[in-house]
Write a protein that binds this DNA or RNA. Structure first.
Lengths: 224, 224
DNA sequence: CGCATAGTTCGTTCCCCATCGAAGCATTCT
DNA sequence: AGAATGCTTCGATGGGGAACGAACTATGCG
């Protein structure tokens, strides 16, 4: 009985278990095919297709056709942010998790959040970059500091190729309740971490596992 | 097929139109009775009661019994934040609003967000307070600056009575996409604005309308 | 061209849950 | 005490939508 944006429509899209599983899987950041998402959600292919259609129509997903594959991905950072917010509430009010599970600890330490690193490691990294004045925090926006270009160039990341998306963005962490670095720079750093094989993605999970030498290298570069 | 917090459970609670309307109404910050919420949602009293039970069980609401009235309110700022996040997405992907409506403009300028002021006015206010070093922004947290106590004491707000809730908090604005001030201080300032009659609440809406002299007074105190 | 794989569409079935009326508690007023 | 108000519980009804199998379209491979 009240005007305004149709929040029930969006929430009900997320409110179906199959769709929620799909969205959760897509929070890993990589686009997935319909079959992969069907498997992830535990439903048949036709069912998954129907769900994907609804998510598309609702504007939560984008799709890229490549040959006979269709890669589905989250429509954007705002959608990812909403899902993190819902996850935060579910985490808080949820039935006091019976057993945290082995993955869970790893998820808190480091995980993929859409296209960048999240978790304690990521929060520590942003803190350090701000403390070193490489990045400057101002309001919700994070900006490049004076030494940013040289700092990142030294480790092979070019911050000057300006894309449509903002280079830096703050993203609130549901496990730590503080911000970590998102945006293209955050994405580039995650790429670097994986490319250097400092860490690997846990199979079928968003957890990111650092190898002992990889952790040292990461700390040397970003936390020193 | 994936562990973790049950996001579908939470989202489906918000996903019902009647419940979404109730939550939206409660975003106004004041606790409401079951009958008021039934009216707001456009459903009968038994139906509303059922919905309220589910929202309670889901942990999204708290209730306070006062005589034969039961006052329902949002369970906390985190829940309010989640609803704003969903609202933001709905706003972004939503069916290109047919007519913005008269209320809509007012909502962007100033509105109630749970228990504090949101909208352009609120964003400007926080900016100014940070610029004047009355408040200090550091990470997601906002802290009191050195002159905070005297500054707020001068306008009759005591920042030293420390409650359980944080005094300052940043809350992301869906219309402006920047932060405004939440926490007990944010709540106290809204109280002040209403107590001084600088502005009034639009009936049955979250919009806050400043009177011309009220706006001047507000700007003198918070934007000078 | 024929076969295999990837996805969508269609039609049907079925279950969950939103809804309301009527009845049942609880609290307050007179 | 009796009446009135505020809210919850119960039971019955109905509709929306999630699920799958089968058929259909599209792309790639030999």
């Amino acid at each position: 009985m009240r005007e305004g944006p149709d929040i029930a429509r969006i929430a009900s899209l997320v409110g179906d278990p199959a769709r929620a599983n799909m969205l959760n899987a897509l929070m890993g950041g990589t686009a997935l095919t319909a079959s992969e998402l069907a498997l992830e959600a535990g439903v048949s292919l036709p069912t998954a297709s129907s769900h994907l259609g609804k998510l598309m129509e609702g504007g939560l997903l984008t799709v890229a056709s490549q040959g006979r594959h269709r890669y589905y991905g989250l429509a954007g950072p705002q959608v990812a942010g909403m899902i993190e917010a819902i996850t935060g509430v579910a985490e808080a009010v949820g039935p006091k998790r019976v057993r945290p599970g082995p993955r869970d600890g790893a998820m808190r330490v480091a995980r993929v959040c859409y296209d960048h690193l999240a978790g304690e490691q990521a929060v520590a990294m942003l803190d350090r970059l701000v403390a070193k004045n490489v990045l400057v925090r101002d309001e919700q926006e994070i900006r490049l500091g004076p030494s940013a270009a040289s700092h990142f160039a030294a480790i092979g990341i070019d911050v000057y190729t300006k894309p449509r998306r903002p280079v830096c963005r703050a993203c609130l962490d549901w496990s730590v309740r503080r911000s970590h670095l998102a945006g293209t720079l955050g994405a580039a750093i995650l790429d670097k971490i994986l490319a250097e094989k400092w860490a690997r993605r846990e199979k079928d999970s968003r957890a990111v596992i650092f190898s002992p030498p990889g952790k040292q290298a990461f700390e040397k570069v970003f936390l020193s």
